[in-house]
Each structure stands twice: as structure tokens, then as C-alpha cells.
Design a protein around this nucleic acid. Structure first.
Lengths: 265, 265
DNA sequence: ACGACTTTGTGCAAACGTTCACAAGGGCGT
DNA sequence: ACGCCCTTGTGAACGTTTGCACAAAGTCGT
């Protein structure tokens, strides 16, 4: 039954939500493999990945029947299957546009090159940076984008440039043949059909956190005595009823205005 | 009628999916305000934020009735309402743990301090870095975490340390009273109930892109002639029928087997 | 003052995602 | 060889999210 049924379920139909979790499972599997674990149950793997075991089983079932009832999953075999499904059995050359802090962080990111990805080149517009090497990768000028993409068959581009420059860079990448873009700039990129854009947006995540934090403190001390886990908290934690209006930071004129000059409440 | 109906719908029930989009709308609104746009329709705003207009209207309706039928939404007023809902009308001091490239990127991130957030302090373990200033923020040693959190009433922490150190830092933050954590380390953090963790994971995003890229090239030239938007592509784009098996990268027998030695079909 | 026009806000149904709960199936001890 | 025990894989129930389509409600021109 488990033959490479290229038609059964994998035809075209793996849910987005499942795909988004596969990398998580993969990471947990690698961690297990590092500890020489040979086999793992859905319960254990789910715990390691931070999800519910039923969900994990259903997710994996979309790839095929790679487990053994009564036993669990063979770690190495599952790593292979998940990797293959994600397309990580081949190497993806990636071009990073923008050699600022974010671009450097990306280039240095260990788990990056780990499996499946490799930095083909970095691009920057600063003459001072062009020609230097970052994390072992040569930095080219923006005019080299097309050449680098063609030369290395780059299909994935990471944009870590300021917001105003992002759309322009995106257009050039797409024109050069890049069909997958990872966008770190805080703008909505417009791309032609067939191009895939994912965004990583720090401020959005912060804002979501702020919402929940506000919600939490607004409910005003619902006195969370309920699970003894509280003991794991240090003494300082209890003073948090957060009486402080965070006015203390003071000294800095910084906060209020900063270059951007956009505001208007 | 649009009074702060603290009871109507906002009682407690704004869907997660909606909350995740509010920051997007907020950004689009600020962009409009910068161009001195006074009023905007759901259609326009939705386009600017890259979503469907029905969705946008439904999302906004969760906050209250802040639009005017036949006209649209007042930009400034909506900015205020969305900001208030997200809790951005107050300043959130954030502590950044890890002054590596990612931590620096975060500290320098313009849109960061923009509205609602301020870097209370940065923390690092490298003696060479401690005591210096990054983007105007003093870097403290790890032993100062508790003091900084208590002093500034920090409720949000951003973890940008290596994976192995992340859980330890997380525990200390939680013990110190931090209840919202933005985790950049590629690990699943375990926290007590009541603490909110969001993760930003570069490699997961890349892997999702790889999946779609693979899918795209696997379908082998389904000849996407269909929308004239192709003309927006440069010449190089057309050579993309992707004849390249990215074999140029060559050496590797690629497709069939790869190092992983894991296999066993 | 009124009617034509525009755009919001929402009921409803379909699509999608999650969770439960259990039958199917495989290993292991006797 | 057999039956018990364990864990997978999945049908079905439930919850959430999306998108349509339209009534409600406002503006603007005449």
C-alpha cells in the first residue's frame, strides 16, 4: 500500500497548514537522530514539535503511510520522506539582497545552509560593502543580480533591503527568473501570478504580542493561581501586577520622534 | 453610535486570524496618512493591504462600526481605533536578548520603535559587547536581565540567541515576569501557561518556499499562458520554463541520491 | 426634499483546519 | 501459532475562516 503512490493523495493535495508544519517535524526529527534515536511514536514526536499527536499523524498521513502500527516511525526514514516532500533532497541556491544586519544574520544563520539551502551570493548597493565577503560569501553590486541568478540557477531570493527599495528589487528578481521570494521588508509586494512570496515581519509579530499582552493586563489580575507551575517563577515575577507606567526610561529623547516623521494621531 | 461599546463584540471575541491582519491594515493606513489621504474605501484599503475587501470589512467590523456607508473610513480615526485595539496607544518596552546580527537588526529596525515599542535594553553574554551601545541602546550582561525587566516593567522579550541557549533565557525571562516572547531561535520553547510565545523562523519559511518551488518545477511547464501580465516580465524571465535542472550546480548526481544516506524505500 | 448612487456591515454557506475516538494492523511474549 | 497490547491511520464531528451577495444606511446632485 505504501508504494510511491504518486497518485493516491500526494497528487497535488497537501494542505498548506500541513506544509507549514513539516519543517517543524523535520527539525524535531533531526534532534532525535542526533541523539541516535531510531524510532519515535507520534506522541513523542508531537511533543518535541509542540503539536497535538492526532494532528501530527494526520499531517504525516498526507505524505503516505510511513509508520509502523504498534511501533512508531523510523526516524531516518521519516527524515528522508519529509525532506523529499519539502524538496530538500536537492540544493537550493539562494540570493540575498541587502547586506545589512538582517542580510548578515541570514547569511550567518547556521540552520540555513544546514540542509537544502546555500547562499549563491549577496547583493548590496553600498560601494563600501561590495567586494567584501560576509560569512564567506562575496558581496556583489545590484547590477549583478541578473547575472548571479542566471549563473547559479537561483530560484529563491531573500529581500532584506529598506522598505522603499523592496518592490524595485522584487521586480528585478522576478524579471531575472526568481519565482520564490522571502520578503523581510515591511511592505506588501506585488508580483505576477506564478511567483510565490512569503513575508517575515518583525513588527507584525510584536504587534500581535502587544495585543495579547494588553488583553492579559486588561483583564486585571484574574489571579492565575491554578497550576502549581507558578513556583517556577522567581520572586520578581510577582511584583508584576505591573504598577509601573513604564515612564522610567526617560532620559532618552529618542522615543518620541525619529526620522520617519510620519505620525498623526 | 460608535461610542466605545466595550460590550458589543469586543467583549473578548476577536478572531486570531483578524488580529494577525490588523497590523497589516495599520501599516497601509499609515502609508495613506503619509500621502494625506483623508478617507479610504474598504476596496482601496484592502488592495493596499493585499487582502480581499469583504475580509477587511468583516475584520474591521469586529472592532466596531467605524466606517461611513457610502463613503468609507476616515483614515486617522481608523488608525486610532486599530492602534487602540492592538494596544499600541501605550508604549511597550522590549528587551532584546542577544546582540548578534539578528538582535542588531531588530534594534535598528526602523518600524520597530515607530509606534508602540521601544527597546528598553539589549543583553549579551560577550564581554566585548557588554557596555557598548547598539543603535543607541546600552548592552548589558545576562545577569542584568532581572533588573532590567523589573526596572522598566518589560513585558515583551525578543530572543535572538543561539538555539541551545534559548530555553534557558526564556526561563529567566518568564521568571523575571515577562509574559510575551518573540523567539527567533529555531527551537520549540516550553513556557508555563499564561505566557505567550510567537516564533519567527527563517528556515521554516525557506523550506515552505522550497516546497512550492519544487512543486512548480515538478509540474513541468504547464505552460502558464493565461494572463497577459506576463508582459511585465523582463526578457530573462521567459527563459524560465526552467530548463535548468539546477544541475549547473552540478557535481551532484542530484536528483536520485544525496548524501543523507538515510534512504530506504 | 428626494431619489439615485455608493459603500458599509453582516447572514449564510462553503471551504478549510482541528480534534476525537476507534477500527485496522503489526509486533511480541508465551 | 495465537492472542494481547500498542500505535498508526482515518472517518466523523466540531470549530474557524473565507467569500458571496445583499439589505441597511449614508452622501450628493438636482
Amino acid at each position: 500500500m505504501s508504494r510511491r503512490t504518486r497518485s493516491d493523495k500526494s497528487v497535488q493535495g497537501i494542505p498548506e497548514a500541513t506544509i507549514a508544519r513539516l519543517p517543524l517535524y523535520l527539525r524535531a526529527l533531526y534532534a532525535l537522530a542526533d541523539r541516535d534515536t531510531v524510532s519515535v511514536s507520534s506522541e513523542e514526536l508531537a511533543a518535541a514539535a509542540g503539536v497535538n499527536s492526532a494532528k501530527l499523524r494526520k499531517d504525516l498521513s498526507h505524505l503516505g503511510s510511513y509508520g509502523t502500527r504498534g511501533v512508531g516511525y523510523d526516524v531516518d526514514y521519516l527524515i528522508y520522506q519529509v525532506s523529499r516532500e519539502l524538496g530538500l533532497t536537492q540544493d537550493w541556491p539562494v540570493i540575498i539582497i541587502g547586506a545589512g544586519n538582517l542580510g548578515r544574520a541570514l547569511a550567518n544563520y547556521g540552520g540555513f545552509a544546514t540542509r537544502g539551502f546555500r547562499v549563491a551570493a549577496m547583493i548590496d548597493s553600498d560601494p563600501q560593502v561590495i567586494g567584501t565577503a560576509i560569512a564567506g560569501h562575496r558581496v556583489f553590486g545590484a547590477d549583478e543580480i541578473e547575472r548571479v541568478v542566471a549563473r547559479y540557477g537561483v530560484m529563491i531570493g531573500a529581500i532584506t533591503v529598506p522598505a522603499v527599495a523592496a518592490q524595485g528589487i522584487c521586480d528585478r528578481l522576478v524579471a531575472a527568473g526568481v519565482t520564490s521570494i522571502l520578503n523581510f521588508a515591511p511592505v506588501v509586494l506585488t508580483v505576477p501570478e506564478g511567483v510565490d512570496v512569503r513575508k517575515v515581519d518583525l513588527s507584525i509579530e510584536l504587534q500581535i504580542l502587544a495585543f495579547h499582552a494588553q488583553r492579559r493586563s486588561a483583564v486585571k489580575a484574574p489571579v492565575q493561581h491554578e497550576n502549581g507551575s507558578v513556583k517556577s517563577l522567581g520572586p520578581a515575577a510577582i511584583i508584576n501586577g505591573l504598577p509601573l507606567e513604564l515612564g522610567s526610561l526617560a532620559s532618552e529623547g529618542a522615543s518620541a520622534d525619529n526620522s520617519g516623521g510620519t505620525v498623526r494621531p
